[in-house]
Amino acid sequence: MIPGHEIKKKHIWHLVIGKYRRHRNQQTLSSVARETAISLPDDSPILAIFKSAAVKLNDRQDRHERLVKLSRDITIESKRIIFLLHSAITKETCEKAVSEAITRLQKLAKGPIKSIGLELENIPSYLHWRAVTPGFQEYVEARTLCSLMQTQNIITFQEMQDELTYKIENEENEKERSVITMLTQNDYMLGIADLTGELMRRAINSIASGDSEECFNCCQNVRDLYTGYLGVTGCSRDLMRKLTTTRRNVEKVEAAVYALRVRGGEAPPALLAAAPPSWDAASAHSDDEGFF
């Protein structure tokens, strides 16, 4: 204890009392506010309105959180599937990887994606679009890459949407109802824009494994997709942002193919893949696959 503390404390106390006495018969700002708040009846109609609003808002928020979680699960698994597809080098391992990827994609469609459909069954679409779009984009990316490796063709929006339609058996009256996890076309196109990045990677990998035909194929696919995007008018802002990355992907893959053509005979394939032409170095960084 500091000497004199007691006195000091008393002194302050007197001041407080003095202030209190001065205002004894008058109100302070906070006392008015307090009195008004206390005088509210518990069963006032206004509070009842707010209580019901609180329930609605809480429902909405909880649902949003659950969807974000599902969407994250989808993103993580889709990224792993893409990685799996890239890991295949020879034709045999490639087939194996594709078939494994297909089972894992189906598991995704039957698991979290179906849960999203059920969660949103009676909810207006687009209300929670922001929560689910990252997962859907990544899933589209994985699914289209897989279809491209399997059939040489990109699975269309309608086909994907059909894959995400489920029949649910109702236990009580044995009627079937169908639930659709709505995929928006915008999400599909955003996923395809990401696909160009994966194709670029695949083209470069295939140089490393000596499969130049595959490399040219991928390159042409990337070009075709980019051409398609150039022709689209009136697309969303998210998509516009992705297109700069897509353009970089085109440049990278074309540079790689150029190197393959020019120096193909001279260098071992691994070297070609490792050393892209020097002008490519400036745009080498990619912000594709960023933050989800």
């Binding site: 269309t156 395809i192 051409t227 398609g228 022709g231 697309c235």
Partner: peptide
Amino acid sequence: MSGNLVINNIFSDFQK
């Protein structure tokens, strides 16, 4: 427009 029919269709649907 590119030569790939599937890709062309994807984009024409999207444009529509």
